[in-house]
Amino acid sequence: MKRQIPLVIVFVFGTLMVIQYFVPHENSEIVKGFLLDWIVIIGIFALALGLWSLVQVSIDKINSRKENWEYPLVTLISLTVMIFFGFTSHAEDASWWGYFLAIAVLLAALWMLAQGLMGNAANRNVKSLSALGLVIVFSLLAIFDGSWEFKFYTAEGLTNQMFVHFFDYIMIPLQATMFALLAFFITSASYRAFRARNLLATLLLISALIVMLRFTPGPWGEYLAKTSSWVMNVPNLAAQRAIVIGIGLGIVATALKVILGIERGYMGKG
């Protein structure tokens, strides 16, 4: 039973979606809309699982005090702080001290809570109790400090100055720099891998060279630009098409195997 029901669900919904493709009637569009909505909503619950996994793995590492245990702590702190920013709004010209104090109390409370519930340290009860105390302090701050407040129902957190700052000055530079590493990696990869070892490697090498030299100024460059545009439009097009067709068939075959229950590997039955 435990194995059968999921297979039936896969078959029913898979077939339903295939049939849906051929039926233009509005009822068919409506059914598809519902299914897609459900997937989005399942995603919400899955995200909770995901974050829980991240927190759990981090806390385990911290508690083990193994090498590099400090870094998961950075992750957890930044996670908490950023979520706090996202759910709060700060009065425009009010002082920031109350806001930062609240963050500090919140972090301390969570730290104590993690120690009290999951830690292996002594006096866990004391830690749990102090966590409770800190949570009360935090709640009082949230209620009585007028300079900031929680906003769960309006997306004001997204425009919270600190939230925007963290996005602009932490996420964007990190993201862009991580991506920019590619400039270096593509250089070292071409140095390491483009060697004329055999016919195939030589073909790879030559076509890469032609394309790389395509915008060299001068008549030589113009000739290479034409050649590389031919390479892109003719042999490249042909091979891409072969790959595209192959992938299309691979996807159809895999989807079919899944719907028919021939392929069950995604449910752990190999």
Partner: peptide, 20 residues
């Protein structure tokens, strides 16, 4: 772009000279 590309090509050539 241009000098960077030329540098990569130079590296490829050096690698191949060494290899051959």
């Amino acid at each position: 772009q241009l000098p960077a590309h030329l540098l990569i090509i130079l590296f490829i050539l050096i690698g191949n000279v060494g290899y051959l």
